[in-house]
């Protein structure tokens, strides 16, 4: 009896030991690239191309960052990225919330078709629509503004879909009660629906944020001048087509781009994790 118990403990100990080791391995697998990004940006060019690579910079230097700042007008790109990202999130919310509310709570003619269209729009990759949109933007003479990076994303099909799912979870009698109290639709949305769909709203905003901030292909096509280009394109510009890639400079640039996203995530990670998971099961 006694010995059996310790045997079991031992086995448990070994399994959890293996489990722990494997978890550490997973951490390395998922975090090492970030570690790599960070340390490379503090290396000298010479050190960045030695093989085998060094895991800790021998000569810790800020030269790469200095070069990024001297080669790029970073504030311009940063400003563009921030404006585009915030505008997209705000417009998508303003457009998406009422649509999702109507699709969740009203029945009207053509609702089925509209739902189908929203779903269908979600499937369409931008790479097969961009030529027509480009010509549209060009005719409007918008290509030297930030608008082509914002306006086409005014409605997010995925966002509408997620929000609708969340609104449908709100019990009908709460809304009926509010209506009996003569609450306006706006009040119902802001006081009842949005708080109830908080985590979905957060997920949707997170996706908009990540999608806009990281977008590369669309602004590449939709911008004709440097003053309207976002950070992603600027970082790509650090890649010198004629010379060996200067890894520290590239990584320093990428770090500047990745940092805001990581900081936001670290600050909100618990909420984001539960919001993403929550919306997944609904």
């Amino acid at each position: 009896m006694y010995s059996k118990h310790t045997g079991l403990d031992l086995r448990r100990g070994v399994t959890s030991g293996i489990s722990f080791a494997f978890k550490l391995f997973m951490l390395v697998l998922f975090l090492f690239p970030f570690y790599w990004l960070i340390i490379t940006s503090f290396k000298t060019y010479g050190e960045s191309i030695v093989f085998p690579p060094t895991l800790i910079p021998r000569n810790f230097t800020l030269a790469a960052f200095e070069q990024v700042f001297s080669r790029l007008n970073l504030w311009n790109y940063l400003k563009n990225s921030i404006i585009v990202t915030l505008s997209v999130i705000i417009i998508q919310t303003l457009v998406g919330v009422p649509a999702a509310y109507a699709l969740a709570r009203y029945s009207f003619r053509g609702k089925g078709v509209m739902l189908a269209l929203v779903m269908a729009a979600f499937m369409v990759p931008t790479q097969i629509t961009f030529i027509t949109v480009y010509i549209m933007m060009s005719k409007l003479r918008w290509l030297n503004t930030l608008l082509p990076q914002i306006v086409p994303f005014g409605a997010s099909a995925y966002g509408i879909f997620l929000l609708r799912q969340a609104f449908m979870q709100v019990p009908a009698d709460i809304i009926e009660a509010a209506r009996l109290d003569n609450a306006s639709e706006l009040k119902i949305i802001t006081r009842i629906m949005l708080p109830a769909a908080r985590s979905s709203l957060m997920t949707v905003s997170l996706f908009s944020f990540v999608g806009s901030w990281n977008s590369y292909f669309w602004p590449l096509v939709m911008s004709n001048s440097e003053k309207v280009r976002p950070l992603t394109l600027a970082i790509e510009r650090l890649k010198d087509q004629d010379a060996g890639i200067n890894w520290p400079v590239i990584m320093a640039g990428n770090m500047i781009m990745v940092l805001p996203v990581l900081v936001i995530f670290l600050l909100l990670s618990n909420k984001i994790i539960s919001a993403v998971g929550y919306r997944g099961i609904k």
Binding site: V95, A99, L117, V118, A121, A155, A157
Partner: peptide, 8 residues
């Protein structure tokens, strides 16, 4: 729904 549908 109109604004959203217009965008789409």
């Amino acid at each position: 729904v109109a604004p959203a549908m217009t965008f789409l």
